[in-house]
Design a protein around this nucleic acid. Structure first.
Lengths: 251, 251
DNA sequence: CTCAATTTGTTCGTATGTATG
DNA sequence: ACATACATACGAACAAATTGA
């Protein structure tokens, strides 16, 4: 049996925090059910291959989160479940995306005109000479759940500085009848928080985020809208019905 | 200006590792280009608001990764880019998924018959009384990139124990003409590595993974295939063409 | 009621890692 | 390179609360 300490070397997170994250996952997944008694300190020591004090530090961490309740002489009990904010559904098609964004409450935290183009891969369209950079934070229930870094083609931005500066850009863009979106490309990866993102999302530096790069290309093949969206990992869920879009082929 | 130390409190990762992750991100994103000289220690101290030694620890970490090269009297230079294995494309429709899985090289690490049903939400189908639990690891270039924990309906499993035990289950399932998949539901979230997953993916405990729950429902509304797939975060990318499935409306 | 077993809580000493100036 | 401070982790011993025989 591999001890936990051999796994520990692969991460710089303190051991007790790692143990806590495993326990948290067990509560979350229902492996340890609400109200039940978990293993004794002795058993946990043996299972995780760590010292008693380390187990207690992990339990203390989860006690502060309201997940565990340790009682001297009796045992340690599950007293709650981790809260998730999985209310975010990433859109899977363009119309849904636009309709979702429309109702978003955003806070523009930064606007800078005439910036250089960001780097994108060839197949995502040609770059315009200049962009406006717009950074905004999206809130839900007073808590930040995503940071949007948007490069909007400069000429588009000047057509309605006011609206682009103070509300979601996508709905305004759709309103422009002379602009036709011919490609909408989305790439989703797992990234780490930069200082700016960490500060705005109120998370630690280097903590994981769900990163979404959304590129819109117009009829001339120009990438007019390039957004890098960083979602808080607990606010993120992508639901896909794999059979829904399969209709054309079966017909 | 917020110092990094105020952000530090939100994460239990050592400060120098956090600084390193920001620097790594800068190299990865191209903000610091290959071969160029990065800021001096003095500047980095000031920017991050940490001690000189801490900056050096971060640089040392990246030097070991082959990303930086510090030369006394000259400066510190970017000597490489982080390697990504973003060759994985999660499927967006059922046919693509099946065709992708077909060529997968997997290693079955665990099989257990007649296990209890896992927990799923109501809208993902009714549960069968018994399942077979199959755990496998997918490799690419000798490196593990995903762990699949599959609950396969027990009666299906016994129809071809051999094939289900030693190769990908999905292609075999499709071959069965009497089985009709009426729902294929996929939910993607960010999770943390359990001891088993961490060990198989060779990552640290509690490190982030891309978690994909795939549920297949047959004509009777029974969830016959429930897979929990954990992807290594660096091997994961989901590409979506948002307009692809929108053809009917624009024409 | 008492005793023993069980289980969590506390403390000590030691060693190493992290961060500052 | 050095001195200092604090966090992390171990092992071991002991204390305190609970339970049941």
């Amino acid at each position: 049996m591999k001890t936990i300490t051999s796994l520990y070397d692969r991460s710089r997170v303190p051991l007790y925090a790692q143990v806590a994250s495993v326990m948290r996952q067990r509560i979350d997944s229902g492996f340890w059910t609400q109200g039940s008694k978990i293993s004794t300190l002795e058993e946990l020591e043996a299972e995780f291959g760590v010292a008693r004090v380390t187990i207690r530090q992990a339990i203390e961490l989860l006690r502060e989160e309201g997940l565990l309740d340790a009682q001297q002489g009796r045992g340690t009990f599950v007293s709650g479940k981790p809260k998730h904010n999985r209310w975010l559904n990433i859109a899977n098609d363009f119309d849904t995306m636009v309709s979702l964004v429309k109702d978003n409450v955003i806070e523009r935290v930064y606007v800078e005109e005439n910036v250089d183009a960001p780097k994108i891969s060839k197949d995502e369209g040609k770059l315009a000479p200049e962009y406006t950079f717009l950074r905004s934070v999206q809130y839900n229930d007073g808590k930040p759940f995503s940071v949007v870094n948007l490069f909007l083609e400069q000429n588009l931005f000047v057509r309605d500085r006011k609206k682009f500066s103070h509300s979601a850009a996508l709905p305004r863009l759709i309103e422009m009848d002379d602009i036709k979106i011919v490609h909408a490309h989305q790439v989703l990866t797992i990234g780490v928080a930069t200082p700016e993102t960490a500060e705005l999302l109120k998370i630690g530096l280097g903590e994981p985020t769900a990163d979404c790069q959304l590129t819109l290309v117009d009829a001339n093949g120009i990438a007019i809208y390039i957004a890098h969206i960083h979602y808080h990992k607990d606010c993120f869920a992508l639901r896909v019905d794999l059979l829904e879009n399969k209709v054309p082929k079966s017909e």
